[in-house]
Write a protein that binds this DNA or RNA. Structure first.
Length: 588
RNA sequence: GGAGGUGUAGCUCAGUCGGUAGAGCAACGGACUUUUAAUCCGUAGGUCCUGGGUUCGAGCCCCAGCACCUUCACCA
């Protein structure tokens, strides 16, 4: 799954830069001079902490200090949770412990430690080793089991873990913690007798949200809970702000997005959704790479924002004194590359559209576009199905996926129905009967004045058909006049070889048999430009793109997939802002 | 941009008819060596989004503004 990214790979120059940028911190970090980690024995971490409080004298007092604003309350008012945390930060430093931690070699991810549970054994007094009862099977009274099998001692592997304190259950001279890293949770047992007076006093200074490291032995408590029985504690970082409610978490959607770090750290499932997003994106790349598609990086700054009908963001290049647009699509540059001979090409990247924000729209979003020379829209349909099915396999292999109150069945093959067929079924009108379509459009309150019959038809389709498509369903063979970049069917110039994939009323993918006739392309651009506002994206003819087509682009299939929406559907998230780490927000 | 809703302790939320501001969690003090959102006793914590207005009196009613949510439009 996730590659080990331990501290060994840490860029020391980056780190020293970070240290020297802090007041009083220059030269403090000396770990680069230490021997390699292999020579460091587990549990005997060599950090000899300097007298840390000389470096941060202001942290090490509980005297009142100036309070510039409400964010830093008086430190002597310990009823304020933030002041209490700062006070404890000072007490930790006074104990000679760096409250901001240090490199922590040879630690294991908690998820891996949990997999070591079968190494926990019970050794009887006469030297026999016994397997523990199967705790997953149901209620096991482990205290009773030990009494029945005793006398004896539990043995388990020595482990080193680190994570954030999520729950704390103090019980006299015992403290139970639940700590979490990005692979899972595990309980920590801290007994005064077991860790010693020093570490137990340190543990009393722990707060929810702090990061700690633990050396200990893996075992089971009387209730059977897999637990690291602490032998040595390592403080790693203090959380100075107050974490959200330990049970309800952070609920305010604005705060969740604004403080995504807190959302990720404290709300169940959020981190998993974003790790799943990465899995989906990796799977898409893998699928395309296996099909010998070549990933490229086109320009983000365009002189003409083309390839889609959307308003662009405008920016300015100072040295050239030139207006530039953030790209609204990847299409036109990828096709230029096909002319150049990259016969299977894709880009998976961010595009920007200066449009409204909604539960399905963010001004910047991630798009995949893929082009395959000598393919057509049928080849792209097969590819789309493969991309989605492989992504599902990369997650958990479950083809029935909940979305809101529905369940979407992604078992291939997906349905394929023509636009006309679906129009007849859901709108109840023959799509070939322009007058009947117009009457229907009028009756549902659409503005039909001065509009091309196919445009009216498409508005009816969007109003009546799209929302009804629970899918996944490929809608194929669109009216040609609404698809300016699409090749017509050989036997019917009224029909464009195009499909859109719909799931839960949402457009997930869009693909064409690409138009490669430069003269027809130029003509269609011009037709589309007529009557358009200057600020609209396609209102500038991309002459260089037409020139590229004159150098001969192979006939090809082209596909666009909205990655954020795919992640929404596969992860069961109803809002696009729940699958984008940092969605656009107004300033605080 | 239009319409509707929400804004109260660090977090999650109550707040009746307009009459002294409430709970749980978190915090602080105390008890507890096998707990599971630990429990028990005690303490402290408020710019009721902001600014006006009505009223003897406003968290509550009225007006304006700000932010977020839902929905529509633009769009994918």
């Amino acid at each position: 799954m996730t590659k080990e990214s331990g501290p060994k790979q840490k860029d020391s120059s980056l780190y020293s830069c970070k240290a020297s940028s802090r007041e009083g911190g220059g030269g403090r970090r000396t770990f680069r001079l230490r021997p390699p980690s292999s020579t460091i024995a587990l549990g005997s971490h060599p950090l000899r902490t300097p007298p840390y409080y000389f470096l941060f004298p202001n942290l090490c007092t509980s005297q009142p200090v100036a309070t510039p604003d409400r964010q830093t309350p008086p430190e002597n008012d310990l009823s304020d949770p933030r002041a209490a945390r700062r006070h404890k930060l000072g007490l930790i430093a006074e104990r000679g412990i760096d409250p901001w931690g240090a490199r922590f070699d040879d630690r294991r991810f908690i998820g891996d430690v949990r997999k070591m549970s079968d190494q926990v054994r019970f050794q009887t007094a006469d030297g026999q080793t016994r397997e523990l009862p199967d705790f997953d099977a149901g209620d096991v009274d482990y205290r009773q089991w030990k009494a029945d099998n005793g006398p004896g001692t539990e043995t388990g592997p020595q482990v080193r873990v680190a994570g954030r304190i999520m729950l704390s259950r103090p019980a006299g001279k015992l403290i139970f913690l639940t700590i979490r890293d990005w692979t899972g949770d595990i309980q920590i047992f801290i007994g005064k007798k077991q860790v010693g007076e020093q570490d137990f006093e340190l543990a009393k200074l722990f707060d929810l949200g702090d990061l700690i490291g633990v050396d200990g032995r893996l075992g089971r408590t009387n209730t059977g809970e897999l637990t690291v029985f602490a032998e040595k504690l390592h403080f790693q970082a203090k959380m100075l702000d107050v974490p959200p409610d330990k049970h309800a978490g952070l609920n305010d959607p604005d705060l969740k997005q604004r403080m995504r770090y807190a959302d990720l750290a404290f709300n169940d499932g959020v981190l998993q959704t974003f790790l799943d997003r990465t899995k989906i994106v990796k799977s898409i790349r893998r699928t395309l790479d296996e099909d010998r598609f070549c990933e490229v990086e086109g320009p983000t700054l365009h002189t003409i924002a083309g390839g889609a009908a959307a308003r662009p963001f405008v920016t300015h290049h100072n040295a050239l004194d030139m207006k530039l647009f953030l790209r609204i699509a990847l299409e036109l540059h990828l096709k230029r590359l096909m002319v150049g001979g990259i016969e299977r090409v894709y880009e998976l990247g961010r595009v920007y559209r200066n449009e409204g924000i909604s539960v399905r729209h963010n001004p910047e979003f991630t798009m995949l576009e893929a082009y395959q020379a000598y393919g057509d829209y049928e080849s792209m349909m097969d590819l789309t199905e493969r991309l989605i099915c492989n992504a599902i396999e990369a997650l958990d292999g479950r083809y029935q996926r909940p979305f809101g109150d529905k369940t979407v069945d992604f078992t291939p093959p997906f349905q394929r129905r023509t636009y006309a067929d679906l129009f007849q079924q859901y709108a109840g009108v023959d799509p070939g009967d322009a007058e009947a379509v117009r009457r229907l459009a009028d009756s549902i309150g659409l503005d039909t004045a001065d509009k091309h019959p196919d445009v009216v038809k498409n508005e009816v389709f969007e109003a009546r058909v799209e929302d009804a498509l629970e899918g996944p369903i490929f809608v194929i063979d669109y009216p040609a006049s609404i698809c300016p970049l699409t090749k017509r069917k050989a036997d019917n110039p009224e029909i464009a070889e195009r499909f859109e994939l719909f799931v839960c009323g949402m457009e997930l993918a869009n693909a064409y048999t690409e138009l490669n006739d430069p003269d027809l392309q130029e003509q269609l651009f011009k037709t589309q430009l007529e009557g358009m506002e200057e600020e609209d994206s396609m209102a500038h003819m991309d002459r260089d793109f037409v020139r590229a087509l004159r150098h001969a682009m192979p006939p090809a299939g082209g596909l666009g997939v909205g990655i954020d929406r795919l992640v929404m559907l596969l992860c069961g998230q109803k809002s696009i802002r729940d699958v984008i780490l940092f969605p656009v927000l107004r300033p605080e």
